[in-house]
């Protein structure tokens, strides 16, 4: 989620460095030759930028690089043996990899469509003149603010055999499915929970977009005889297409990588029915204790994510 927020926080039409147009008095070169000026500049960069890179390299850069290196080794009983690409071969030749890829797609598509439509519907409703909106909006954000463990607990409780969902279904249709322990129903069940948790974010972003549309634009379309649907499709959606695109692309990546909510409801089960890639990695390391293969899997996931998201980032820079 944070990635989406940060991406949107950037002002559009600006390079990544976003250099201010001019220099200030503080930039004037003090007495001394070119050489000294250069050292001073280096010192300034080290002072201001250095600490952040120290943290980033220690926590992200080094572990990522070390992990790539170690993924070519087999760890057993404390001794490391170089085995080249064998860990990768193991993964790519296992059926679970493709099954988990498919489940990740299934989960991501389901959650994305649901979140987008629910967020859009809520945004359209709350874009109308409504006096109590200011009291309702903070309430609507609650699902997004909840930690994954709380979402998982609430929904596990709802889905339990005698839970609210089955009480309602039982009263209406006389059925009481076992949700999270059924291989066919588990995935739809966690998708619904995922939609519920993430929709408020789409709601907020789309609403911010809708409220930035000049009223005259909509009125002009209405004068020309456009009905509500036509205004939405031909005027409002194109106007906020930039927000929709950025929110969607990065939302997709975030959803595909989501771990907490699914794992805490199902641990990837029953019979691996909700074993998306992130959960498979976690289980490979911490249930099967196959840390070497988990390392290689992390590299693969990282490559997939970067391959998908770096172009999105570039797109955003050009837009």
């Amino acid at each position: 989620m944070s990635s989406v927020v940060a991406e949107l926080g950037r002002p559009p039409k600006q390079g990544p460095a976003g250099a201010p147009p001019s220099r200030s008095e503080l930039d004037r070169t003090p007495r001394g030759g070119r050489g000294r000026g250069r050292w001073r500049a280096l010192g300034a960069v080290a002072t201001w930028i250095g600490p952040s890179y120290l943290v980033l390299l220690a926590v992200m850069g080094f572990p990522a690089a070390w992990n790539v290196a170690i993924s070519f080794f087999q760890v057993s009983y404390g001794s490391n043996r170089f085995i080249g690409l064998a860990n990768y071969g193991q993964i790519l030749s296992s059926g679970q990899f493709y099954s988990s890829l498919w489940l990740t797609l299934y989960w991501t598509a389901g959650v994305f469509v649901g979140q987008f439509l629910l967020g859009l519907a809520l945004a359209l409703l709350f874009n109308r003149r409504m006096r109590i909106a200011r009291y309702l909006k903070p309430l609507l954000i609650i699902p997004w603010a909840l930690p994954g463990i709380v979402t998982a607990t609430s929904w596990t409780f709802l889905y339990s055999q005698d839970g609210l969902v089955n009480q309602v279904l039982g009263a209406l249709f006389g059925i009481a499915p076992t949700w999270l322990s059924s291989p066919t129903l588990a995935m739809p069940a966690v998708i619904i929970a995922g939609i519920w948790k993430g929709a408020p974010f789409y709601f907020l972003m789309i609403l911010a977009g809708l409220q930035s549309i000049p009223k005259e634009l909509v009125e002009a379309a209405q004068v020309d005889g456009a009905n509500r649907l036509r205004v939405l499709v031909s005027v409002e959606m194109p106007y906020i297409s930039n927000i929709l695109a950025v929110t969607s692309v990065l939302g997709l990546i975030w959803t595909a990588n989501y771990f907490d909510g699914i794992y805490l409801m199902t641990q990837g089960g029953p019979i691996n029915a909700t074993l998306t890639l992130p959960i498979w990695i976690y289980n490979t390391a911490f249930s099967d204790f196959n840390i070497s293969e988990a390392s290689a899997l992390s590299v693969i996931l990282l490559l997939i994510v970067l391959a998908l998201s770096v172009p999105a980032l570039r797109q955003r820079r050009r837009a």
Binding site: S3, G61, V310
Partner: peptide, 20 residues
């Protein structure tokens, strides 16, 4: 580099961090 750091998902970083 800072922007790319934001794209690295925790799910892909958890094993690297564990090993370090």
């Amino acid at each position: 580099g800072v922007l790319v750091s934001q794209l690295l998902p925790a799910t892909a970083m958890v094993i690297p961090l564990y090993r370090v």
